[in-house]
Design a protein around this nucleic acid. Sequence first.
RNA 1: GCGGGGUUGCCCUAGCCUGGUAGGGGGCAGGCCUGCUAAGCCUGUGGUCCAUCGGGCCGCGCGGGUUCAAAUCCCGCACCCCGCGCCA
Length: 427
Amino acid sequence: MLDIKLIREHPDVVRENLRKRGNGEKVQILDELIAHDNEWRRLLTEANKLRHERRGITNSIASLKKEGKSIQAQISKGRMLDKEIVAIEKRRDEYKEKVDHILMRLPNLLHESVPVGEGESGNVEVRVWGKPPDFSFTPVNHLEIAKNLELIDDKRGAKVAGHGFLYLRDDLVLLDLALQRFAIDFMIKKGFNLVEPPFMMKRRPYEGVTDLSDFENVMYKVEGEDLYMIATAEHPLAAMYMDEVFLEEDLPLKLVGVSPCFRKEVGAHGKYTKGLFRMHQFNKVEQFAFCLPENSWDVHEDLQGNAEELYQELQLHHKVVNVCTGDIGAVAAKRYDINIWMADDVYREIGSNSNCTDYQARRLNIRYREKEGQSPKGFVHTVNNTGIATSRTMMAILEQHQKSDGTVSIPDVLVKYMSGIRNLKLH
RNA sequence: GCGGGGUUGCCCUAGCCUGGUAGGGGGCAGGCCUGCUAAGCCUGUGGUCCAUCGGGCCGCGCGGGUUCAAAUCCCGCACCCCGCGCCA
């Protein structure tokens, strides 16, 4: 959520931001917001004047009573005023609701380094690590490899849970767990605190962390309960400190969350949905940080470095892109994606890293104070970054580390987490 | 799931029975005093709106209700603590 004061004082900045994002239609709702906010403030001031008058009457009744005088005239005067107050406050609240409604729908302000562009094609490459594998045979996709090795059962997954669900089997389950343990140990060494969050959360904290359209397109709702299945550990991690105030010396607070992720993937038609790439359920180790506003850009780069190191240790060729205005999403001020090479010679997203600045913190009311005993100074910044999404990482390992005989070699760093297994092969 | 207790400002706490401007302590910030330090004393402390000084409104877990007037009375809900029950 943006600061309403910023919108009042610098509407041109916000308007320009919406244009850059290609949210032309939102420029209009911004103008509506400003008009509604003006009207809200006018009605608020008017209501406050009436309430002030009303308080005077109430107080005069108390003193008249003490003197034993009649209070009837004051009571009827008060009743008249009450009617006016109720009417004005009803209108005031209607405008306030309109203001909040729009405010919750405006995207975050972009960082100046975000490239302007439309869709994925507008993303700008900033780094490449490694090269495409030099195969002496025609590489095949991970689903084919995994099915040949009897490590994935997609037919039964579909039978039992529907499209987008798989049974993982045997060594692929071990690989999933190995990736999680590898990433967890890595992040702990980097000074992160390990957290397993709740896998469901209530609506109010959920509204604090995400775009409202996600409630239709992304999250599963638990029927009959005020609970949603988490789409990523980022969400419960961000909401963990809702309505709290950090002490400046405790920041940055870096958390590594491990959890399954549940996503409806509404509107995924036409996108690449093969095998492990786009599923309704997968496991992820997530980096998350709360930090001071002045540090968030450093922390953002810091987490990016961690993610790149992870894929380097796994010997996975990838590219880093600065995600453009048309592809970045509402919550982030800046985002890097890591795109992984796949066997069809296409690079696909394996993780992303977003600085959300104070956008989530304002919605969640997470602040910081300079010293114990002082009042809060401002909102913290939040940064979230995929450490390892096991599904897409397994996919990349299968495709990049496949061999001509249909087996797959396990990256060295994972072997100790795989009970010594060095290859995926048919048993 | 049942019973009891609780939720007041940055923190702790009084006020609730018996409705009438939320009091005290601590912390923090600023000031006074002081040769220096400590102590002491004074002022301030959340959100928001209008405005030149300044002033108003809101805020006692959340939402309703009663009343001229609600932290206080009534109803509903959430969360926390204790005990009981059930349970991997």
